[in-house]
Write a protein that binds this DNA or RNA. Structure first.
Lengths: 244, 244
DNA sequence: GAGTGGTCTAGACCACAGA
DNA sequence: CTGTGGTCTAGACCACTCT
């Protein structure tokens, strides 16, 4: 029950209260990713509003990619699938325009250690909090193209790295094994020169230009959950941004 | 008048027909950027649908950034303002997170000539069609940071370049002087090495890493209107991409 | 006050999925 | 067949802007 009776004079719109309530419940795990929500009618009855108001709330959540609706079936909490990972959280395409997920070629290392100052600041952790640190090389096609450094708050991912195999799509792992759903990410992109390490792993010359993508990913409630830096060779792939 | 009477059995939804009709009219120039549309009631009456259906159509156009609505005032065709240019079509921020529009420092040249093969292909023109070619240097803060190459179809911008002053916000010029409204852009981003030309104009060493943004901008009906390549120094500014 | 968009409701009918 | 979401309508009331 919500919407605090009918005391809605000059407050935030009812449908926003409803959508916030639904977000809160998803956050609390009342409905897990992939689960079906109650029907519009059921929600309307429980929350004591009209069906139209519930619909408007759900439409908003649909636009925010939080739920997915299917006529005749129901409303479902959006889950991380390979599809979603590819089309929503991966912005590299081949020069012919086709998209292609990279595959992990080699994991250079996984450590569980105290985070340094940068890491704790970016992840909004107290200084010297424990983090999980992963370095890996990813392939695009048959070319080693991406050198990736990932930093995670150890508390949110207890035990990660004990079994040394990592899947290709990390966000699915986060969601299914650790209950951490990545919902939003901000990327800051610049150009850097390849150092010896890059040169060795990516088969480029020392000083070659690389694209650096610095991505901070957050959960639904805004908690930073992953800091990822990718240095990549853009000879045959480009980063895509669309402005509409 | 539209919506072809009430012969709507298993067709595209009415509200989509309405929004397409409104888009078509904006395209034809019935309402120019900045103009007010008729009120919901007026549109509903003219198009013979209910106010709610017009509302749904207008909501869609609002999400597509095609119109802007203000309670108590009306519905307006979105126009290119400096604000819009900054927050919608400019993805660079300073490393402290603040946004700042670049200023034109120097125009290296403006030519009206036949397009080469690449240029005509990207702009979907017949081979050797005339284009306007602009090269300029832009400053971020006090640093010469961006080397920019712009190619335009000469037919759409007759006379541009005759008076040698160009404003900072080109998209406003396109809209106000030539009736060309940029509505969508696709950017492909990679890393390159500075050549002698870049080194001279951007005050970097030969071979320094630069970010290259290749942007193709389109009008409302999908016609390519501008091909722009920007090579920039990302020492103190980064490209921002947000994923939600 | 008159006119605009914003919210909320109630009800009818359609299209789709699954038992 | 039942239940789901999708479309469309009609009407009431609120909040904001301008005159």
């Amino acid at each position: 029950m919500r919407a605090t009776g009918k005391s809605r004079h000059k407050q935030t719109p009812l449908y926003q209260q409803i959508s916030e309530e639904i977000v809160a419940r998803i956050n609390k795990g009342v409905w897990l990713p992939g689960d079906a929500l109650p029907s519009e009618m059921a929600l309307a009855e429980e929350l004591m509003v009209s069906q139209g108001t519930v619909r408007k709330a759900l439409d908003e959540l649909t636009h925010r990619n939080l739920v997915t609706r299917h006529q005749g079936k129901g409303t479902f909490v959006t889950a991380h699938t390979a599809q979603r990972e590819l089309f929503h959280f991966f912005n590299l395409t081949r020069d012919d325009g086709r998209k292609q997920l990279p595959t992990t070629k080699r994991i250079i290392g996984i450590e569980n250690r105290r985070g340094n100052s940068d890491e704790c600041t970016r992840l909004k952790l107290k200084p010297a909090t424990r983090v999980i640190f992963i370095e890996r090389i990813r392939e695009l096609g048959k070319r080693s193209a991406i050198f990736e450094t990932i930093v995670l708050p150890a508390k949110m991912f207890r035990g990660l790295g004990m079994n040394d195999t990592l899947p290709n799509e990390l966000y699915q792992l986060y969601e299914q094994q650790y209950g951490v759903t990545i919902h939003k990410a901000v990327e800051r992109i610049g150009a850097i020169s390849a150092d010896r390490n890059h040169a060795r792993h990516l088969n480029v010359q020392n000083g070659a230009p690389l694209l650096e993508i610095d991505r901070l990913a957050e959960t639904l409630d805004g908690t930073p959950a992953e800091w990822r830096r990718s240095q990549l060779n853009t000879i045959s792939h480009k980063y895509i941004g669309e402005i509409i």
